[in-house]
Simulated scan of single mutants.
Amino acid sequence: MTATTRICLVRHGETTWNVDRRVQGQIDIPLNDHGLKQAQATAQALLGERIDHLYGSDLGRAWVTAGRIAVPRGQAVMPEPLLRERHYGAFQGLTYGEARERHPDIFQRFEAREPALRFPGDTGESLIQFDARIWGLVEALRARHAGHTLLLVTHGGVLDIVARRVRGLPLTGKRDFDIANCALNWIAHDAGGWRIERWGDVTHLDGTLDELPA
């Protein structure tokens, strides 16, 4: 009998660039005041949950969120660079409007979620590369911590990949699920494979933003 492995994924708290609808990617943007409050609320919401291992992206907005969750539990956060957001190449630092204006052809292909598309100058990660990085890590953590409960504090693009993989959805096509700052997103794996237990739980939060599309 296969032991059940549970994973809670949390997108980092809000940043000013989230509010501005600006592409962060792997640029290290700090939490704003509201994001810090969201992280604290998430810590409180998770206090009653068993968490055996806590991993965090090493980008500041996720790392600080993870730290706020870990401190009241007396647990350490293990840094995991593979949990970083997708690298969006030349789109990083731009709003969607700016990216569309400066790179109209590539932006159109980006919105269409072309799996092999890179960014201007052949930079950043394609969806195929990003998917391989994220899902490879999730499967490695499942094997490493079989039967345990994990918390992964990470980024919106990461949650997009995980939700599609668990639900058997393609990389292409618009998503039909929310990816909110500091929402609780639970998945589990047992003999039947992967499943969503609960997604997009924001009952502990006072207002939150959805991830940018594509």
Rank of each mutant, 00 (worst) to 15 (best):
R84K: 13
T154L: 02
V166T: 10
A90R: 14
G67N: 11
D178I: 01
G48P: 05
L171N: 10
G67L: 06
M1H: 14
A143V: 06
L184G: 03
I27H: 09
Q44D: 15
R133D: 12
G192S: 05
D206R: 13
H204W: 04
R73G: 05
I7T: 14
L9W: 09
L31A: 08
P104R: 09
L94Y: 04
T149D: 15
F110Y: 15
A39S: 14
I196K: 03
W135A: 02
F110D: 04
E197D: 15
L169R: 10
H34I: 13
G192L: 00
R109F: 05
Y96W: 09
L94D: 05
G173C: 09
Q44A: 15
Q92D: 03
W135H: 05
D131Y: 13
R84T: 06
G173D: 01
A41H: 08
W17Q: 08
I134A: 06
I69Q: 10
I51Y: 02
P79D: 12
V23H: 09
W135P: 00
E114N: 00
E197M: 10
Q40N: 09
L159P: 00
P81W: 14
Q75N: 00
T203D: 14
A112W: 07
D210G: 03
D131K: 12
L141T: 11
G156C: 06
E14A: 12
D190P: 00
L94K: 12
D122T: 03
Y55E: 12
T203W: 00
L150D: 05
G97P: 01
H145V: 13
E101Q: 15
G192D: 11
G74P: 09
A146F: 01
D58W: 03
T208N: 13
